[in-house]
Each structure stands twice: as structure tokens, then as C-alpha cells.
């Protein structure tokens, strides 16, 4: 028996909008720790890892570990039927091949349930070790989204370079090239408007802008984004999901050969 009640149902709506472009089908795993997902995009270039910790739910019942295969486009269709202020409850019986999404309006005057068929998905689970990153950049998520969008009108790839001067996003294409430098800036009115750069050593990596733009679909989830870079590893683009978890996007770099 599985029953997860999320008072801030809009978070789940935003999570689906954030990942459905990148991943088509995925297994949602439910355990005592929380509700999680790990999936690669179809090209196996990017990976998304979602965790919504059990403590973040108003009610969390998961009698035994359960993996539910879902088509994310179909989940998104279901969740779009929930109001932004609705409380969302996920329910599944042991051995059932369906999951039920229950939507309750805040004043309890409307209750809807949508039952969706589950699917069998063969998914590969990757071990992601804890890593030391050469540079970690925390910046406003809207600013990062703007930069990715602007650069993708010029080129297909972005070079992200972190030095003591700041973080530089560069691209080049047929019509020309572009460089955007963001310097550390902590003298702002609100902490979420700050750009904070922690650098152990300079790093410069090249990534496909198409994927970066896809990651920025998570922007409505969080005012800030954290970009962790290491010359030996995929970049991690992380958006917090309120105080209950995160979405982490991993993207393999392009390497000059």
C-alpha cells in the first residue's frame, strides 16, 4: 500500500514539467527515504535524479519498496488537471497496475481522482558517487535560464569557464560569437539574487545547449540554481524542490578530440 499526500501539490506539477521534455518513460521509486526517480535521456547524454524526501509529505505511507513505471507525458496530462492550490495524493495498492492521483481543493469542496495505468520499464540504475567539484556556482535560476536561451540563438554549445574573475558562458556560431561573464555578487537585497562562486581550481567545459535549455524547465521550482563543475565529471545542475528535495540534472561534456 502506497499513500503519499503532498499539501503543496503544485510542486509535483512543476517537477513533471521540469523533466518530461528530457525523459519519456521512467520508474518512480518509493521507499522509506522518499519518492525518487533516476532516468537517462534517450541519447544517454544526460541523467536526471529526483528526490522528494518522505518528511516533506504531510502523510507518507510506503509499506514496502515499490517501483512504478510511468509515461511522464501521461503523468503530466493527469497533473495538469490539478489546481495550483490543490493537495495531491498518490495512491497505489500492492500488486496493482495502476496509480491514482487524488486532487483536493484547499477548502475541500472539490475532490477528483484520476487513475493511470502503470507500465513495465526496464531501467538501468547508475551509481553516482559523491564527488569533489572544482567549482560550484550558485546563481539566480532565471538568470541562468536567460543566459542559456540567449546563447542558443547564436550557437549549439556553451563553454562554461570558472576562474577567479567569475563564471563565463561562451558560444560561437555561424553568425558570430557571444560571451557572458557573471561575477560573484553577494551585495544584493535578497539572498536568492546573489551569485556565489566557490572555486578550488579553474575549470572549463563544453556542453550542448539543447540539454541546458531543457534543464531550465525546472526554473519555476526554485529561485536559485547550483552548477557544479569538475574537469573529470558531468556537470550537475541542481534545483531544490522547496525544503523537501531536489532535481539534479547531470550532463556529460563534449570533449575536443
Amino acid at each position: 500500500m502506497l499513500e503519499l499526500r503532498l499539501v503543496q501539490g503544485s510542486l509535483l506539477k512543476k517537477v513533471l514539467e521540469a523533466i518530461k521534455e528530457l525523459v519519456t518513460d521512467a520508474n518512480f521509486d518509493c521507499s522509506a527515504t522518499g519518492f525518487s526517480l533516476q532516468a537517462m535521456d534517450s541519447s544517454h547524454v544526460a541523467l536526471v535524479a529526483l528526490l522528494l524526501r518522505s518528511e516533506g509529505f504531510e502523510h507518507y505511507r510506503c509499506d514496502r519498496n515499490l517501483s512504478m513505471g510511468m509515461n511522464l507525458n501521461n503523468v503530466s496530462k493527469m497533473l495538469r488537471c490539478a489546481g495550483n492550490d490543490d493537495i495531491i495524493t498518490l495512491k497505489a495498492d500492492d500488486g496493482s497496475d495502476t496509480v491514482t492521483f487524488m486532487f483536493e481543493s484547499p477548502n475541500q469542496d472539490k475532490i477528483a481522482d484520476f487513475e493511470m495505468k502503470l507500465m513495465d520499464i526496464d531501467s538501468e540504475h547508475l551509481g553516482i558517487p559523491e564527488a569533489e567539484y572544482h567549482a560550484i556556482v550558485k546563481m539566480p535560476s532565471a538568470e541562468f535560464a536567460r543566459i542559456c536561451k540567449d546563447l542558443s540563438s547564436i550557437g549549439d554549445t556553451v563553454v562554461i569557464s570558472v576562474t577567479k574573475e567569475g563564471v563565463k558562458f561562451s558560444t560561437r556560431g555561424d553568425i558570430g560569437n557571444a560571451n557572458i561573464v557573471c561575477r560573484q555578487n553577494t551585495t544584493v537585497d535578497k539572498p536568492e539574487e546573489a551569485t556565489i562562486i566557490e572555486m578550488q581550481e579553474p575549470v572549463s567545459l563544453t556542453f550542448a545547449l539543447r540539454y541546458m535549455n531543457s534543464f531550465t524547465k525546472a526554473t519555476p521550482l526554485s529561485n536559485t540554481v547550483t552548477i557544479s563543475l569538475s574537469s573529470e565529471l558531468p556537470v550537475v545542475v541542481e534545483y531544490k524542490v522547496a525544503d523537501m528535495g531536489y532535481i539534479r540534472f547531470y550532463l556529460a561534456p563534449k570533449i575536443e578530440d
Partner: peptide
């Protein structure tokens, strides 16, 4: 010539 690396070349299957 730029090569797009594969995520599986960094992380191992569990």
C-alpha cells in the same frame, strides 16, 4: 572535432 561523451562513461551501472 568535438566528441559528445556518454553519461555511462562516467557512472557505473548498479
Amino acid at each position: 572535432w568535438v566528441l559528445q561523451k556518454h553519461i555511462l562513461s562516467f557512472f557505473e551501472l548498479e
